[in-house]
Design a protein around this nucleic acid. Structure first.
Lengths: 163, 163
DNA sequence: GACAGTTATTTTAAGCTTAAAATATATTTG
DNA sequence: CAAATATATTTTAAGCTTAAAATAACTGTC
């Protein structure tokens, strides 16, 4: 049988194939959830998921965060944050304050409007997540959470070892 | 304690909080894997993940796929596919053929170059996935796969019910 | 205090993504 | 057959994403 009549999974032995299948399932699952959250935030609140995530990071940091701290917390590149903060500032949801003692940095804070908006949105957002995963029992939720934590450790370990 | 001193998780009851934590873990895990795959494909083969995914879809469909079939298979919008196919065609990895009997559609095929390139890349790609998840035992891999499948059903069910 | 190296942020170029509008072609229906 | 409707695709506008280059400001060290 020539390669062209195989599925790309057939290039693997059994164990690898199981792990590839696991990855594909994780991807499908998180893609579905993310798409739904994105759609909900857009239609209900006219906001994007990255903007919501940035507000969440600020909400959990009452003293504000610098651009670099934001980029680390959100696991995205530093150049990325610039644009997202710009749009949130334009909409009046965040403020930039000069950082005393370092003229390179500024500290980003939630505005009062942004804080109120976020609390309303977060309640809905968290509810959507709970509803989507509501078909899992408490036991299954715990097991899945635990296994994902192990998976994260495996991935992290492998990545750090290659450096 | 005012809302501003709470984390947004505190807006939830216990069960909802567990499911939110589950979602955050899934997101972190899939984001880490995806970033690593993206980086590998870029540095080793100078190709993007969406382009790789599109080649994979074509590889598993020897008779080619229309733009609409591609967009469904990849779970992205139809307008999206246009650009990805354009760039792959520019690089000589895919061809478009007129679809007999329907002048609106064209069918996208892998070129010979694209097919060879994909097989090489897929081997590496699948190996990276297996390595990253190699810290999980076979049993854990199976359990996680199974639980993700249940999670997918829960999400899908909830989404379809709201329509 | 000048120079070298480091850190914080923005800019740039390329590509991805979506929803909505626009085109073009097919199909159905009166 | 003509009009209405549906389908396949592309275009558009807005925003996200990255890596790499460019700025700007800080922190040594000589």
């Amino acid at each position: 049988m020539p390669d062209s009549h195989k599925t790309s999974h057939d290039l693997l032995d059994g164990h690898d194939r199981d792990r590839l299948r696991l990855w594909l399932r994780m991807l499908v699952c998180s893609t579905m959830i993310e798409r739904e959250l994105r759609a909900g935030l857009r239609t209900e609140f006219n906001i994007t998921l990255p903007q919501f995530d940035l507000l969440a990071a600020l909400h959990d940091a009452p003293d504000g965060l610098t651009m670099t701290e934001l980029s680390q917390s959100m696991m995205v590149s530093n150049g990325n944050i610039t644009g997202v903060v710009e749009r949130l500032e334009r909409d009046g949801d965040v403020h930039r304050k000069a950082k005393p003692g370092d003229r390179r940095s500024s500290v980003i804070h939630l505005s009062e409007q942004g804080r109120e908006k976020f609390i309303t949105m977060a309640r809905e957002h968290h509810g959507w997540v709970a509803d989507m995963l509501g078909g899992l029992s408490d036991t299954e939720t715990g097991q899945l959470s635990d296994l994902l934590s192990r998976a994260r450790r495996s991935v992290k370990h492998h990545i750090e070892e290659r450096d």
